[in-house]
């Protein structure tokens, strides 16, 4: 494994179900973590819905993504950021979320993107 380190930012912009994006992003996040690279997750737009607790997707025959999100903690992935405006637009606050995330405004999001080596958007 390479000794070199690169910081990764994974941006989640899609709702948890309806497309494979959320699951695809999470799989990449866990792999980055296995490679012991610095990692942050940012939730924008409908992506903030991924962080709501108590998903119940059994009726649409999907696997529960919130169970997978719980794995973030197991993998020591704690740099989790969420767009303040996306929360507001959807009538949510950071207290409504199922895990601890720091809310960021647009300027802070730009800074976050700038300070990472690789940005992957889903």
């Amino acid at each position: 494994m390479s000794e070199q380190k690169k910081s990764f930012l994974i941006i989640n912009r899609c709702a948890p179900y309806g497309s494979s994006n959320a699951r695809d992003a999470l799989d990449v996040a866990l792999t980055v973590s296995v490679f012991e690279q610095p990692l942050s997750l940012l939730f924008l737009d409908d992506g903030v819905l991924q962080l709501l607790p108590d998903h119940n997707p059994a009726d649409i025959a999907q696997k529960n993504l919130s169970a997978n999100l719980a794995m973030l903690e197991m993998y020591d992935i704690d740099q989790i950021f969420v767009c303040e405006k996306a929360l507001q637009q959807r009538g949510l606050t950071s207290e409504s979320l199922g895990l601890k995330a720091r809310t960021l405004n647009a300027t802070e999001i730009a800074d976050l993107v700038r300070k990472h080596d690789q940005v992957l958007s889903f």
Partner: peptide, 20 residues
Amino acid sequence: SGLGQLVEAGIVSDRVVTFG
């Protein structure tokens, strides 16, 4: 191959460009 190849590419490359 697995997602490790994506992460390795990120480590080795100066730029990773996504086409979604």
